[in-house]
Design a protein around this nucleic acid. Structure first.
Lengths: 217, 217
DNA sequence: TTAATATTTTAGTCTTGACTAAAAATATTT
DNA sequence: AAATATTTTTAGTCAAGACTAAAATATTAA
């Protein structure tokens, strides 16, 4: 049995290791999970004992095949619950993270499969992130950050890299939503800002915002 | 902040004390919660410290006004989630208890109010038990166990006293469901069995089953 | 009303998951 | 290559919530 805390560590290692196959440092995990490095060392040993992680002292951590699958299952649950909260309960997308953070630990495979069906087997959550299927597989929409897109090109806003409340609120305020068609019209080298055009308006965004908006190409 | 474990104790005391106003013994709580009496003593002291329970050594426990409201909130969440699982995810009623037991501890008032609306503010859960509103108020349907009903009378099956998996499966097998119109046609003193008639059939039930079926009157 | 039995509490232990402070290993400078 | 800085681990604590065994109180029976 995997505990709630172990699930959170698996998720952190998965995300930091960019699918869990890269090696991740104790300190990086500590920062992500908001714990002290010494606590991370303890937990990582436990994960290694349970065959969920590969761990060599002073060398960092990566996930085993089993650890990766467990992480994906937690992520699947998180994203399905987020979808439920937004689509069925009418939460706005910046409100759902903390609640999904709790719901993702509910233990029942049947529940999550039924929820999946109830939501019509969505492939992406409200932030545009892919939802793994019950075997842990998913397909990522190919997308590029606006930073990497030359003026004159356009695409559909498919995901955001930053899912913090602050950023999602900023998007709401500026009426930017997933699915919006966006054209990059100008780049200003002086302050590295971009001017983008949607169906309804033209706005200027900072480099930091551009970095976090991904358009399908 | 009330912990998950504290919530479970409050619920147990509430149910055993028949709304938490009666005094409940340490042993009774221990049995209900499947813990040892000594663990119960520890926890009950903590609840008293937090003003959630009244506790006098060797004299038993009852809930304070605040404890009672907290218990009702947990029960509200439990029953709303059960309703969700049955009505929206198509679980059958004997499968939902264990999952609702986990979901009832999710912390978000907004979530539960939105869920309530999503389900069209149900007043009773799939077992016929009343769902408290957000202030902890509810109205119980007046009902009597079949044991207390004289042959010749009839009513609608509104709740069951036993919510165990085994009993709910028995009801499914015998095609008895909440809302069914039932007439008590005969009582056999020899083995204290009852014969009851539904729209579709006539069956004989044991005293033990009769005790757990409640008809509105 | 005392003796026997049952219930409840206390005292001390264990596990989980966190922490601090100090020690050890690795990295980076000079 | 030595000195310094950074990262990581170890060792020892702590709180929550459970447990066992023993002591204290209540209840029942003789």
């Amino acid at each position: 049995m995997v505990t709630l805390s172990e699930e959170n560590y698996l998720k952190a290692i998965y995300h930091l290791g960019n699918q869990g196959d890269n090696t991740v440092s104790t300190n990086a995990i500590a920062e992500q999970i908001e714990a002290k490095a010494s606590s991370v060392t303890d937990m990582v040993k436990k994960l290694a004992d349970k065959q969920l992680a590969n761990y060599i002292k002073y060398q960092g951590v990566s996930l085993t095949e089993e650890g990766r699958l467990t992480a994906r299952t937690v992520i699947r649950k998180h994203r399905l619950w987020e979808t439920f909260l937004v689509k069925k309960l009418n939460f706005s997308w910046h409100e759902v993270h903390d609640i999904a953070e709790q719901l993702e630990h509910i233990k029942s495979e049947k529940l999550i499969d039924k929820l999946d069906d109830f939501l019509d087997n969505p492939t992406h959550d409200p932030h545009g992130d892919p939802i793994p299927d019950k075997h842990g597989n998913y397909t990522k929409i190919k997308s590029k950050s606006i930073l990497e897109i030359k003026p004159g090109n356009q695409g559909v806003l498919t995901s955001v890299k930053d899912s913090s409340k602050a950023f999602l609120k900023y998007l709401n305020k500026n009426e930017l939503a997933l699915g919006d068609s966006i054209k990059v019209v100008d780049f200003e080298p002086f302050d590295e800002s971009f001017t983008i055009e949607t169906k309804t308006k033209t706005i200027t965004i900072s480099k930091n915002v551009a970095k976090n908006l991904c358009l399908s190409i």
